[in-house]
Amino acid sequence: MKKFNKSSMLAVAAISLWIGTFLSPILTCGFNNSGSLFLNADPNSKSSPAQTQAIILQNAFEEVFDKVSPSVVSIATERTVNVNVNPFMNGPFFERFYGNDPRSGRQMQQKQTGLGSGVILNTEGYILTNHHVIKDMDKLTVKLKNQKTFEAKLIGSDELMDIALLKIDAPKDSIKPATLGNSEQVKVGNWAIAIGAPLGFEQSFTVGVVSAIQRGGLNSSGLSYIQTDAAINQGNSGGPLLNINGEVIGVNSMIASQSGGSVGIGFAIPINEAKRITEEIKVNGRVIRPWIGVEIYSLNDQIKEELKLKIDQGALVNQIQRGSPADQAGIQIMDVITHFDGKEVKDSNDLVSMVRAGKVGKRVELKLIRRNNEIITSIVLRARPN
């Protein structure tokens, strides 16, 4: 039997101590409460001033959701369409001879579904949403936050402004109307909050800011939109855009995106415009819109140079519909409208907004430039043809 000398004993002891130092936390972890793997929050710790401010804002967001979410609904849409199911009649060869005539092949019915959002306007069950959510649909089903569903009736809609008014028959104590704000008071930098059903995820809450106001030129409506970077996706359409007080300032309508998903550029119809449209729909079932019958463009450097214009603002008349109020008033192509009913016209969007805000049957004064000569005439607003 070999004997260990004193130095060997010391070496063994040192190695054992070194191994124990590294292994002891591993061996004891989970078995001794004093050596817990997790660090618990200190209930007595105090928030910093910055954290306190953040918590106050967080509480404000929670209040907005608790206040408004019962007023936001999901709208399931459904329609039945006929589709051609003959596989031999769908190729380009047969389309050349038969076109897309549905009689050229066997037909079958197919259900198509969609989903959007809406906001409750009053205890009578009126609901505001987008026209494109309900367009050409046969069945509309509204789901409340409490999961109760009701079949909705379409009161009317306006395709140009993308506004629709629905109604459900629900007990008054089961529906909570939203509070409508004033979109004219909205400023860039204000909080912007969206609640809806993006991609079918109901009662989703997203937050951003107002990126721009009076964003025009997006379509032929002449409407100036509220732009926001709050995430808006398919399914948010028709839902409310809210301020930090939980007031509806807009109706989410569309996004600018190459991918089809949110990239932080969303647009909402100002609630003041939406209110005006829905009130008219409720009374008349449709919108009777003033019209003068011209196609117009805003002035730019090229137009000003070609026409040798000495003005910087106005709306250039590019086309006139025969028999329209503009035609009857003697307006000509290449005229530049500078004033409408005593108000200065800055560009084409400005003129569209002025006409839209007018009343059918009213005679208004126009100032225009024709070959650098100022001409004053008048025009009678008529109802826009369907």
Rank of each mutant, 00 (worst) to 15 (best):
V287A: 08
K343W: 01
D347S: 06
R289V: 04
D347I: 01
G314H: 07
M334A: 11
K310H: 09
V336I: 12
N300I: 08
Y297Q: 15
I337W: 01
A274V: 08
T278H: 05
G293I: 08
Q332D: 12
I296N: 00
I320G: 02
F340T: 01
V283E: 15
Q328I: 09
P290W: 01
I281A: 06
L309R: 06
A274D: 11
I288V: 14
P325R: 11
H339T: 04
W291A: 05
A268C: 04
E279C: 07
D312C: 03
Q313L: 11
R289A: 05
G293C: 10
N300R: 09
S348E: 09
Q321D: 13
G293A: 11
T338I: 12
V345F: 01
I281W: 03
I303V: 15
K308H: 14
E273P: 03
L309W: 04
I311A: 04
N284D: 15
L307M: 14
L299V: 12
A329I: 09
S298R: 06
G285K: 04
V345T: 01
G285T: 11
I337E: 00
N284K: 15
D312Q: 15
L307R: 12
N318I: 09
F340V: 00
T278D: 06
D312R: 13
G342N: 03
F340L: 02
K346A: 02
Y297E: 15
V345I: 03
V294A: 07
Q328E: 15
T338E: 10
I303G: 07
Q313F: 12
K343I: 04
W291K: 07
K282A: 14
N300H: 10
I281N: 04
E280N: 13
K304E: 14
R286V: 08
L299Q: 10
L299S: 12
I292T: 04
A329M: 08
N284L: 14
P325F: 07
K308Y: 06
D335P: 00
I331Y: 01
Y297S: 15
I277D: 12
Q332P: 03
R286N: 14
E344I: 10
D312T: 13
D312A: 12
I331L: 03
P270H: 03
R286M: 13
S324V: 08
Q319E: 14
S324G: 10
G285C: 05
P270D: 05
